[in-house]
Design a protein around this nucleic acid. Structure first.
Lengths: 189, 189
DNA sequence: AGGCTCATGTAACCGGTTACATGATTAT
DNA sequence: ATAATCATGTAACCGGTTACATGAGCCT
């Protein structure tokens, strides 16, 4: 469901091909929504059937032909309705197989749990570095409307940034606690 | 996939029925993994077929009969292997339809975006309250082993706590920014 | 010659959700 | 009476993933 609204959202900025959409997802939403190209094309078909978008084939001589999709009036309405609905309870709910692993990690030696968390921390740090590499989203803006648009994008970036940072801090605290009980256990033996 | 490992994890603590499992999920993992009862029963069937668990029917006179499941040797192995695998890259990856909405919220008036975030903040605060209501997980522990087990559970609780708190702070910052541009826009008119 | 970008798809599968069905006992 | 708890499932569906297929042009 959400992928289709993501597609509508991008097409609302302007017409583009399935290929372009995949790129757009990769370069912006990828932090909290990964889109497989196969899935995008499938969803485009469904959206076209529903009349939310309309596709136009463009014949190219030097490159493969492509289909450019535009959002229709009904599509725009559906998208705007989805936005206006606001955040449901899914907002506070988030699934994580990793946390489930942490929950059950009492079943392996503390040292191993600590290793897992160290790996997690490292992954987070690498993620942070990747984010720092491309910070130049806001630089200058013309109208207020444009600034507002960019601001909303920036909100999600900030969220990701804070999230990852708090993950690292959390992992550090956990590791420390695990190390201290590992020492205790060693003494007891 | 992950639900089945969650089931194995609980059964590794001791035998229980499908109904008990649903309760266990609700009372502990529910923050980051919600399990539908229908799904649990389906998964139990699959796990039994695989030989990871074995069920025994218990006839009750005063209540409906039930099936108590125990983890088998191969099941235990599978579970331990899953744990030992460590956190994959899914750990840093997290999906959120809500953040997608925020990303696209430049398409509705700033005041409406602010409302959405206020709602989100409120939901988070309610969640926090619910968490505070049941903090008495750690009280006293016998052995170190037991303490370690509880510690791992506590890690996930702490994660949830920090996560929600940082969500609230983030939302506050966003709302403030939105309010300031809303004032500006009002002046321009 | 080999790999990258552009470009679009199909088929099988799977994990999970929603809706529905049943029915006894126990507590209010 | 009525609601809640105990207890287990089936069927339809859906969103998403994985693997696979194709093929031309461009850059090194």
């Amino acid at each position: 469901m959400s992928l289709s609204f993501g597609i509508l959202g991008f097409l609302n900025y302007g017409p583009m091909s399935g290929y372009d959409l995949v790129k757009s997802f990769e370069s912006s939403l990828q932090f909290f929504w990964h889109a497989q190209s196969s899935h995008v094309y499938l969803e485009l078909k469904k959206l076209e059937k529903k009349g939310y978008i309309s596709g136009e084939t463009i014949i190219q001589s030097d490159r493969p032909n492509k289909r450019i999709f535009s959002i229709t009036k009904t599509g725009k309405e559906a998208f705007l309705n989805w936005l206006a609905e606001g955040a449901g309870d899914e907002a506070t709910q988030f699934k994580s197989a990793f946390l489930m692993k942490v929950f059950f990690s009492g079943n392996m030696p503390p040292a191993q749990s600590a290793d897992m968390l160290r790996q997690f921390k490292e992954d987070c740090e690498n993620y942070l570095k990747k984010m720092d590499a491309a910070p130049e989203t806001i630089e200058h803006y013309g109208s207020n409307k444009e600034m507002y648009q960019i601001m909303c994008w920036q909100f999600t970036v900030e969220f990701g940034y804070c999230f990852i940072k708090s993950c690292i801090e959390w992992a550090e605290r956990c590791i420390q606690k695990l190390e201290s009980i590992d020492e205790q256990t060693a003494k007891e033996d």
